[in-house]
């Protein structure tokens, strides 16, 4: 089996690859994932936006999405991990985040490429996503040197805290928008 295929389903191979490759490749992968996420919703955006706009957003803001998520999530993971006695460094967690989700990136690529979807594409999509999640969970447990139970707790706590931070960020921006708008819009709308 070619070594690259083993990256899809063998967490140990992923750990080795992440340690072997430079951190620049992890940066590149995260940027690519961000672009693929936006590209996956691109077809639905084309109903309202031109292809030029969708392309520009994918190219400019896709990498940014990847950078933000890949910067925040490993940091949260490290914070929770340290509280639970973990041994992983930020650099290790960052690289693992990029390489573990390679199957998920491939799933997004398939979703973008194949607009005519037979039953094979959604099944492959689902399996690849599962592989990515499994790779990541397994590598976190191994790198943090956790037991399975402690590892599961760390992963769940990280996920919850990440979404809490995301919700707080969205809430802050929404509040700033509302305060900044003043009473003009609601007053016009509620006019008898």
């Amino acid at each position: 089996m070619p070594p690259s295929i083993s990256l899809l389903y063998r967490p140990a191979a992923v750990r080795a690859k992440a340690a072997e490759c430079s951190v620049f490749s992890a940066v590149g992968l995260n940027a690519l994932y961000g672009m693929l996420i936006i590209a996956a919703v691109g077809p639905s955006m084309l109903q309202m936006f031109t292809s030029g706009f969708v392309f520009a957003v994918t190219l400019l803001f896709g990498p940014l999405l990847g950078f933000i998520v890949s910067s925040v999530y490993p940091r949260v993971e490290m914070t929770i991990g340290k509280m639970l006695g973990g041994a992983a460094t930020l650099d290790e967690l960052y690289r693992l985040f990029a390489w573990s989700f390679l199957p998920a990136g491939l799933a997004l690529l398939l979703d973008t490429m194949f607009t005519e979807k037979s039953f094979i594409v959604p099944i492959s999509f689902f399996l690849l996503i599962l592989c990515g999640i499994r790779n990541y969970c397994s590598n976190i447990i191994a790198t943090q040197q956790f037991t399975r139970v402690r590892g599961a707790v760390a992963i769940i706590l990280t996920l919850v805290l990440f979404f809490v931070l995301l919700a707080a960020g969205v809430g802050l921006i929404t509040t700033l928008f509302r305060w900044g708008m003043g009473e003009s819009v609601s007053a016009i709308v509620s006019r008898p």
């Binding site: 700033l176 928008f177 305060w179 900044g180 708008m181 003043g182 003009s184 819009v185 016009i188």
Partner: peptide, 14 residues
């Protein structure tokens, strides 16, 4: 009248 003159200077909407 309703938006440009009432949007706060620091509003992210700008």
């Amino acid at each position: 009248l309703t938006t440009w003159n009432t949007l706060k200077p620091w509003s992210p909407a700008r």
